[in-house]
Amino acid sequence: MVGIDPPIIEIRKLSLRFGGLQVLHEIGLDVRAREILAVIGPNGAGKTSLFNCINGFYHPYEGEILYKGKDITQLKPHRIAEMGIARTFQNIELFSGLTALENLMAARHILMRRGALMGSLFFGPARNEEISHREEVEEVIDLLEMESIRKKVVASLPYGQRKRVDLARALCMEPSALLLDEPMAGMNVEEKEDMARFILDIYELKKIPIVLVEHDMDVVMDICSRVAVLDFGRKIAEGRPSEIRSDKRVIRAYLGED
């Protein structure tokens, strides 16, 4: 499969700087329509910054990002979200005072067409719209096995389950590409296994490309079709997991010079 699929996100010579700090340096990377791509690298390599550029939190001073052939480099995050790139966050960004279900319904607001007035009257078309959105949300709840936490307030949930809500929130936007920032950080083995299964299920069912930043190499090697390695803002390697595992530059970046 690798190499045949057209790219859906194209990153060209992307450079990002905070003051004097060069965070990303001429990154070039394609995300193909059918793949799970892992972005790995030591702490501070620029993985999350790369994500932040793709979804519009940061704007690079050089280079461009094309999404389905359109330049999205300077667009605002909400525009990019509407265009179909959804992401999860390393530090989980949810409305912690709302229930899991309310968070997921809120995620669908970009897909809602009725105005605030109709919505607050909860009448006719607005009601039907709400119901159809709830049906979609329930599909996601079923997919990620969240039935038992549906009505729990997010703040009361354990960390692993909050991560799951975060992923569900991204899915509820019906994305055509999914960025996952450390989906398994801080999880125990069982939670990791569940999460890996969910990622594969999403990939299979929704047929969308998934890009993930992850530190757990076993997970990366198991579920990803391709890996890109960053080190100090530069891409130092790219390829299949088996190639990356034996790549000298990658080993050096992780273990230091000898």
Binding site: R134, E135, E138, E139, I141, D142, E147, R150
Partner: peptide
Amino acid sequence: IAMRVKDRGI
């Protein structure tokens, strides 16, 4: 009704 099952929240 003979049986009832909760599915997709309903």
